[in-house]
């Protein structure tokens, strides 16, 4: 645990001093703000609750933020040669992966908490109508599913960054995996297999956020997200071991 903490601490500090991280966070908050504003305006008087609008507008941009934040984790170390120093230290691959993953996840959690201030703190002060409708528990449920999704995106991004020494290439590949692939698979299925439309209605990740924010919990989906994150981290740890052996 000491080594995981040491790696987490260094990586988190590096995030705060990295210009690209600041730009990514600012862009994420701006994109979220715009989406949330548009959704609020478009759903005035509708039955949609504010926590669902918040959850959906964050979930849309979460894969993008996670992809950009995680690209530097290993690719920067490979480009600078620091990976050699890390690998010659008495640390296990899983400790390195855990420390790095947790640092990116910490940044995503911080970003999520910043976005939460809008519906929980700013809006109630601006509108008495909203004040009556805000439930902290409902937000906690939406936050839970967003954290699970963020864990998957961060784990996938950590794995991708291991295979590139060029950060731009890692970011592009990670974006493709986190955003492009699920969407492409879903739309392909919907387009070419009409019979599956009813069964596949649960597939869009935004629907999970909506369900959780309205109190429709699903242990199955929670396990799916957890298992996916653990799978990506496991593959990352084993790939790091292979990388060490191959040089």
């Amino acid at each position: 645990m000491r080594t995981v903490y040491a790696i987490w601490k260094r990586e988190t500090r590096a995030f705060f001093s990295a210009f690209s991280c600041g730009v990514a966070l600012a862009a994420f908050i701006a994109a979220y703000g715009c989406t949330f504003g548009v959704l609020l305006r478009g759903n005035e008087g509708s039955v949609l609750q504010i926590q669902s609008l918040w959850g959906v507008s964050v979930a849309l941009w979460l894969p993008v933020l996670s992809s950009i934040l995680t690209t530097r984790l290993f690719s920067e170390e490979r480009a600078s040669g620091m990976i050699e120093m890390l690998m010659s230290s008495p640390v296990r691959e899983r400790e390195v992966v855990a420390g790095k993953f947790l640092s990116a996840f910490t940044m995503v959690v911080l970003a999520l908490l910043v976005t939460l201030t809008v519906p929980l703190w700013i809006l109630p002060r601006m509108s008495l109508h909203v004040q009556g409708g805000v439930s902290v528990l409902a937000f906690a449920a939406a936050l839970l599913i967003l954290l699970l999704q963020a864990a998957v995106w961060c784990a996938a991004g950590t794995l991708i960054s291991l295979f590139f020494s060029n950060q731009a290439a890692a970011a592009a590949c990670s974006l493709l995996l986190c955003c492009g692939l699920p969407a492409a698979v879903y739309f392909a299925v919907m387009a070419w297999v009409p019979a599956l439309r009813a069964e596949m209605a649960w597939m869009p990740l935004l629907v999970h956020v909506y369900d959780f924010s309205t109190g429709l919990f699903s242990a199955g989906f929670m396990m799916l997200y957890l298992a996916s994150a653990v799978f990506f981290l496991f593959v990352c740890s084993k790939s790091l071991a292979c990388l060490r052996l191959r040089g």
Partner: peptide, 29 residues
């Protein structure tokens, strides 16, 4: 690896850290 000390040919370091922070980090690691 706990028994060895290694200095690489390229001597890569974390540029954004101070010397003290870097050695502390490596010793903790």
């Amino acid at each position: 690896r706990r028994l060895i000390g290694y200095l690489s040919e390229r001597c890569p370091l974390y540029d954004e850290m101070t010397v003290d922070e870097y050695i502390t980090y490596r010793v903790r690691l």
